[in-house]
Amino acid sequence: MIELTKGTHRVGLLPETGGSIAYWKVNDADILSPVADERLAAFEGQAVAAYPLVPYSGRIAGAGFSFEGQDYALTPNFGGESNAIHGNGWAHAWTVAQQDPDRAILLFDHTPDTEERAREWPFAYRCVMSFVLHEDGLSVEMVVVNRDEKPQPVGFGFHPFFVKGAAATLGFKARGVWENGAGQVPTTHLLLDDDAGLRWSFEKARDLKDVSVDNCFSGWDGEAELAEREAEFSVRIEADPVFQHLVVYTAPDKPFVAVEPVTNMGDAVHHSEVMERGLHVLAPGGRVNGTIRFRIVDRRG
C-alpha cells in the first residue's frame, strides 16, 4: 500500500493489485467506494475503489478481433462471459517508478512473450500512470506507448466507483448513447436529442436512486458532476478531449456509481464503420495520453 496525502486528502494506492486505488478520503469521508467483483478473478476478491482500463475499455465481443489482416484470439477474463473486458493492465502488478508525499508514478510493461500473455493482448505496450493530489482533488494521467514492432489499436480509461448516497445526482452532457445487446456489447447508437434518446439524457442532473444504467455515452464534453442534495461539496470530473466517451454503471441496489472517462466505445475493434469510436492506432514507438481531474467543489459558495 502507498498512501498519498495533501491537506485533508488521503489516497491509498495498490501497485501490486493492478495499479488500483484502495481508497480516497477527504476529511476522513470516503469519496470512492471499494468494490469486490468476483468476476474479475485477477483481483482475487480484493475490493478496489478504482482501476485502469488499458489497452482498451469495455468488452471485446467473443474475445477476438481482426486487425490489419491478422486474426487474434483473447482469453475471456470476466467470469461467466465469452468476451474479454477492460484489457489486462488491471490484472497485473505495476512498478512504482516514483513516490513522493502527494504523488506517485506507476509503470506497467506488457510483453506477449508467452501464449498466455499473447492471449491477454497480442502487442507489446507500456502504460505509465501518474497520480497527483492537489488542494482540491486528484488528477490521474495515463500514457500508453506502443513498444511493439508493428502498429496496434489502443484505447484506455479509468474506472472509479464513487460513493452513492440516498440523494445522489449525476449530470453531464453527451451527444449519444450505445444501447447494449447480448453480452452487454454495444449494438444501437441513439442521439440524445432524438425522442428515443431523451430518456437517456443526463444534461439535467438526475437523481440516481432508481436509475439502472450500464452504458457508454458518446460525444461526451469532458465534464461531469456527482452531488448529494444536502452535501456541502460535489465531485466534478474534468477530462482531456482524448476521453470522448463516458461509461456509467449504477443500479438501485448498488451503494456506488461508476463514472468512467474512456477514450473508446465498447467493442471498438469491431466497429470500423464508426468514425468516432475512439480507438487509436499507434505506430511503433507512438504514444497517446490524457489526464482526468477529480475536483472537490465547495457548494456553499
Rank of each mutant, 00 (worst) to 15 (best):
M1V: 10
E3S: 14
T5Y: 07
K6V: 00
K6N: 10
G7L: 05
R10F: 07
P15G: 03
P15T: 06
S20L: 04
S20P: 03
I21W: 08
W24S: 06
W24K: 08
K25S: 07
V26R: 14
A29E: 14
L32Q: 04
D37V: 14
E38I: 10
E38G: 12
A42H: 09
F43M: 02
E44D: 15
G45W: 04
V48M: 09
A50L: 13
A50I: 02
A50F: 08
A50P: 12
S57K: 05
R59P: 04
A61D: 13
G64H: 07
F65H: 05
E68Y: 06
A73L: 14
T75M: 11
N77T: 04
F78A: 11
F78D: 07
G79I: 01
G79R: 08
A84T: 06
A84N: 07
I85S: 13
G89I: 07
A91L: 08
A93L: 06
W94K: 06
A97C: 00
A97M: 07
Q98N: 12
D102E: 13
I105V: 15
L107W: 12
L107Y: 09
F108G: 11
F108C: 07
T111D: 13
P112F: 10
D113E: 14
E115I: 13
R117N: 08
A118N: 06
F123Q: 06
F123K: 07
R126L: 05
S130K: 10
V132L: 12
L133G: 04
H134N: 08
G137D: 02
G137I: 00
L138H: 02
N146M: 00
N146Y: 10
R147W: 08
D148C: 06
K150Q: 15
P151S: 08
P151G: 08
P151R: 05
F156N: 04
G157M: 01
G157N: 02
P160S: 00
P160G: 05
F161C: 13
F162P: 10
F162M: 08
V163M: 11
V163S: 09
K164A: 03
K164Q: 04
G165E: 09
G165H: 09
A167L: 12
A168E: 04
T169F: 12
L170N: 09
A174Q: 00
R175T: 14
E179L: 15
N180A: 12
N180V: 14
G181H: 01
V185E: 00
P186R: 02
T187S: 14
T188L: 13
L192N: 09
L198I: 14
L198Y: 12
S201G: 04
F202E: 03
K204S: 14
A205T: 11
R206L: 08
D207I: 00
D210A: 12
D210K: 09
F217I: 01
W220P: 02
E223W: 03
R229H: 11
S234D: 00
R236Y: 06
E238T: 15
A239G: 03
A239E: 01
D240I: 06
V242N: 06
V242S: 01
Q244R: 15
V248K: 01
Y249S: 12
A251L: 12
P252I: 02
A258H: 10
V259N: 03
E260M: 10
E260N: 03
M265C: 11
V269W: 11
H270I: 01
V274K: 12
R277G: 05
L279C: 15
L279V: 15
H280Y: 14
V288M: 00
